[in-house]
Design a protein around this nucleic acid. Structure first.
Lengths: 266, 266
DNA sequence: CGTAGTGTTGAATTGAATCAAGTGTCGTGG
DNA sequence: CCACGACACTTGATTCAATTCAACACTACG
């Protein structure tokens, strides 16, 4: 039975009492909150995206038993670091994350961004340890799913096994799209593609698809897209001059999605 | 019970009798040949790399039952095409393959190369259809593994399930490495990294790691690495002038692996 | 033997990086 | 609450790595 706290110490050494979490627990019985750790898979508003999507009520209950709801992470806190032993995958419950590897020059390279409903940590399944480090871009929370227990439950619940294969297959297909993007798109096409991806991912979690915050820095975006932060900034400015987006610091507004789509469709 | 021919018609419409395959069948009882379709998982020389690695003798037999050994493919034959309904994953038995997507300009972009022992088609698991097209770079053969049967057997054989999760996790980790390569490496670093990757993959299948053939064209390599074919050619020439490799048409010889490694390690 | 595909090499161009200088924003501690 | 400092972002000038354009050589196959 996963009390929310049992395993919380694993996460990035956050040990002091977190007032926000305390508040969440207090209101748990009344109204669910995105960071609320008392929520269960069956009443999570993300269950349409996450693992439970393919499961019936009884199956969701079984999944609930193995899911550990850790305390929230603060901006910059690490979920795990490169080479940490692999133990769990994580479902993003609220907030967003970036994964990155450290190059031989000490320079980081961002390999992925994660939003609510998405699964983090699958790169660690093969090697027994995580291939990258993952940190929170804002106040965030996750569901931790111990992998050996997920494997065991997968054998009992065909729908769960099938869905987890699908989640991994989706990650592979997505990575191949990024491969294409990096190997053949111009800087403008990369940025537009990135913004459209964020937009559709925000809409999946019922957030405004045409007005959102970039919780990552221009530098993070640049590392992810294989561009410098100056180029990212210049292209934002150029797209704004063309009237396709409005940029105000970290806030992006999509003004003409059709023309943006036209840029990457040619 | 999978007779090797039942399902062969699926593959790229090769329907005429293939003399090479006929020869293989004739000699099946005597000595195993890489293209030989009568071979089983237990006596396949790739079983250390492929799915059977984690299985015991009885389990391998069960796997053997669902594996379909299709007739060989000729250079240019397609294993499947973009948007074909997903039905199976394929283990490369002999030869090599490339996967590619067609851009909106009709221009192809190579997303992966596959060598013996590697698994093809996992990008199709999520969407119900293959996200790319895959064709043989030379005379080649595969084991076809119908996915629903693999899922079913995975539930019965924990080792198989675990290993297939690991294979998919490995694909994800590998794709993230390529992401890093494409977003931060110079042309020379990409080529060197590519050659070293081929070298280590050849050595895994007991082929010379320091002298091998590039079955793909310079254009294919360029598309894969996000470079033009001219740049690929120029860098080969430059590495040869530095005495690190010898290039003779499609044949590559690695002359100084330490210095090559130093290029990507900085 | 001819031809199409594949590969090499050179010269000119260019998209994005680098270098550089400055402004804006946010969190912290006084 | 404000001032400070660190970090994040923007914009401009210059440089450079890789592309593009172009011409030619090689190879392999019918």
């Amino acid at each position: 039975m996963s009390s929310a706290n049992e395993n919380a110490g694993r996460v990035a050494g956050i040990r002091r009492i977190d007032p926000i979490r305390a508040a969440n627990v207090a209101q748990a019985a009344t109204r669910p909150c995105p960071h609320n750790s008392a929520i269960s898979c069956s009443n999570c508003r993300l269950n349409e995206l996450c693992l439970p999507i393919a499961l019936n009520k009884a199956e969701i209950h079984q999944l609930d038993e193995i899911v550990q709801r850790n305390r929230p992470l603060k901006k910059g806190d690490h979920l795990y670091r490169q080479n940490d032993p692999f133990k769990s995958v994580f479902a993003v419950r609220s907030g967003s994350f970036k994964s990155y590897v450290l190059g031989s020059d000490g320079q980081g390279r961002v390999t992925a961004f994660y939003m609510p409903g998405e699964i983090i940590g699958m790169d660690g399944i093969a090697g027994g340890s995580y291939a990258n480090s993952t940190s929170a871009l804002e106040h965030a929370s996750v569901c931790e799913i111990p992998f050996t227990q997920l494997e065991k439950l997968s054998r009992e619940l065909p729908n769960l096994q099938h869905h987890f294969f699908a989640i991994m297959g989706n990650e592979i297909a997505k990575d191949q799209q990024i491969h294409t993007l990096l190997s053949s798109y111009t800087a403008e096409e990369r940025i537009v593609s990135f913004l459209l991806s964020l937009s559709s991912r925000y809409s999946r979690v019922s957030l405004a698809p045409d007005k959102f915050l970039l919780h990552m820095t221009r530098g993070d975006i640049g590392e992810f897209l294989g561009l410098t932060l100056e180029t990212v900034s210049r292209i934002f400015t150029a797209l704004q001059k063309k009237g396709l987006i409005a940029v105000k610091n970290k806030e992006i507004e999509i003004l003409d999605i059709a023309k943006l789509r036209a840029i990457i469709t040619n």
